[in-house]
Amino acid sequence: MSEFANEGGILAARFTGAVAGAGVSLIYLLPQTHREAASRFLTGLACGMIFGGPVGLWIIKRLEITEGLSGQDIMLTGSAAASLCAWWGLGVMARVAERYAGRPKP
């Protein structure tokens, strides 16, 4: 995993994957306000940058497709998946919490 940190192409793939995943997450679950869109995008970007490597490695091992993939491919895939899942899941939970927050308890 340490070889991922020192290569410029890996950093570019990590950033590109994180941006792509964050963008797709905004399309899947449309934001209600500009503030929500910005927070979701930044959350997805941060999660993709931080968790892109481990998620990419988990995906290729789980799917057993380790042969023929470069570090950039692994990082791009992992960053996009981590970014997409981060706010897709959190966005659903936030909407459910918002819906039931105003209801009085029985």
Rank of each mutant, 00 (worst) to 15 (best):
H34N: 15
T66A: 13
I60Y: 06
A82C: 01
W87M: 12
P104M: 11
S79G: 12
G48I: 11
G17S: 07
A81D: 03
W58H: 01
D73W: 05
A38F: 10
I60N: 03
W87D: 09
A12Q: 08
G102T: 06
K105F: 11
L45G: 06
G44W: 00
T77K: 00
G44K: 00
G78D: 05
A13R: 04
R35Q: 14
M75R: 10
G53L: 12
R14Q: 12
S79H: 01
M49T: 12
I10Q: 12
T16W: 01
R99T: 10
A18K: 03
R62E: 08
A46E: 07
G52S: 11
A22W: 01
R14W: 00
A86D: 02
L30D: 03
T43Y: 00
A12G: 05
P54K: 04
G21C: 07
S2D: 14
Y28T: 06
G53H: 07
R95V: 04
R35C: 05
S2P: 02
A20T: 15
L45H: 05
L26H: 04
G91Q: 02
E98S: 15
W58I: 03
A101V: 11
L84R: 01
T66C: 07
A82L: 02
F41K: 05
D73V: 00
S39L: 14
E36H: 08
M1T: 08
I60P: 03
M93D: 11
E36M: 10
S70F: 04
L30H: 12
S79D: 02
E7Q: 15
L84D: 01
G89S: 05
A37Y: 09
M49W: 07
A86K: 01
G78V: 04
L30S: 13
G71P: 07
E36G: 06
L30F: 13
S83G: 01
A22V: 04
I65S: 10
E98K: 14
W58V: 02
S39D: 13
A81K: 01
V92G: 02
M1S: 11
A46Y: 13
L42K: 07
A37M: 14
I60H: 04
S79M: 03
Y28E: 07
R14I: 02
W87L: 06
I65P: 05
C47K: 06
S70T: 15
D73I: 00
L26T: 07
G9N: 10
R62I: 02
G44I: 00
I27T: 10
N6W: 07
L26F: 04
E3H: 15
Q72N: 12
L42M: 14
Y100V: 08
S70V: 08
G56S: 10
G44A: 03
E36W: 05
L84Y: 06
T77A: 15
G89H: 02
A20P: 00
A94Y: 08
S39R: 12
K61R: 15
I27G: 05
F51E: 08
I50W: 11
L26D: 03
E98Y: 07
P106N: 04
C47T: 14
R40D: 01
A5M: 10
A94H: 09
E98H: 12
A12R: 09
L84P: 08
G102L: 04
V96H: 05
R95A: 13
E7L: 11
F41Q: 02
